[in-house]
Amino acid sequence: MRVERQYTFTVDQETLWNLILDPTVISKVLPGVQKIEAVGPDEYNLTASVGVGPVRGSFSGYVKISDKEPPRRYRLQTEMRGGPGFVRGDGEVELVPADGRTTLIFRGDVVIGGTLASVGQRLLDATASMLMDQGFKSLEAEINSRLQK
C-alpha cells in the first residue's frame, strides 16, 4: 500500500535530522524495539515485539538508511519478519522547515504479508496508521524530553 503521512515537530531541520538518524532515538520511535545493533553505517538489525490488542508478535529484521541528502531527505528501507507475517517498507523521509519548526513527511510503499495480511485485513490500515502515529508521538516525546534537558 502507498503510504503518506506527516507530522510537524517544534525543532529546526538540522536538529530533527540528527535526531532521526540517532540509533537510540530510532530504537525508541519504532514500535516495540527490544534490541538494535549496527551492522554498518546507517544499517541496523533489530528485534521488536509489537502488540495491537490481543495480537502480539515478535519480529526481527533490519532498517537501512541510504541516499542521504542532509538535512533534507533520505531513503528508508526496512523488512521485519516474524510468526504473524512480514512488513516491508521502502520510502523517503523528507524534512521541510518552516518558521523554526520542521515537518517530517514519510512517503513510501508498505507491504504487509503472511498471516497478518490475510487474516487481519479488517484492521490492517488502521493498525498501520496507529503505529505510525505512535511513532511520531514517541519522537515528539523524545524531542520534548531532550529539550527540557
Binding site: 500500500m1 507491504v111 504487509i112 504479508g113 503472511g114 490475510s118 487474516v119 485485513q121
Partner: peptide
C-alpha cells in the same frame, strides 16, 4: 490479492 500477491481475504471474516 494486493499487487505483491499477498492474500487479503484469508479468513471467513474477510
Amino acid at each position: 490479492y494486493d499487487e505483491q500477491g499477498n492474500l487479503l481475504t484469508g479468513t471467513w471474516l474477510d
